[in-house]
């Protein structure tokens, strides 16, 4: 899957989870930049991404993520492997 496609789909999922139609994600974005990105929202975000892309994250992978760029890279790797 192309990087741009991952970002486009990911952006839709962020908008859905954060209920914010104007939200635009960037690789540098972190949880502290976003209002309401608490631990519960984070879990919901991860589970939503897993369902939408048909992939699974391990707890280790989730804990290691530092920003949206790393998240997108992880998705791209997993989708690529499964394709």
């Amino acid at each position: 899957m192309e990087r741009s496609e991952v970002y486009s789909r990911l952006n839709d999922l962020f908008r859905s989870v954060f209920d914010n139609d104007e939200m635009v994600i960037t690789p540098e974005l972190t949880a502290s930049d976003v209002d309401g990105w608490d631990s519960l929202r984070h879990v919901r975000l991860m589970l939503t991404i897993e369902r939408a892309f048909g992939i699974k994250f391990s707890a280790y992978e989730v804990n290691k993520l530092r920003n949206v760029g790393q998240l997108a890279k992880l998705i791209q790797d997993k989708v690529g492997v499964q394709a």
């Binding site: 631990s39 519960l40 879990v43 991860m46 369902r51 699974k56 707890a59 989730v62």
Partner: peptide
């Protein structure tokens, strides 16, 4: 089991 470990969800969020 992963969702239980992650956030103590009693069953899959699906």
């Amino acid at each position: 089991p992963d969702q239980w470990n992650l956030a103590k969800l009693a069953f899959s969020s699906t």
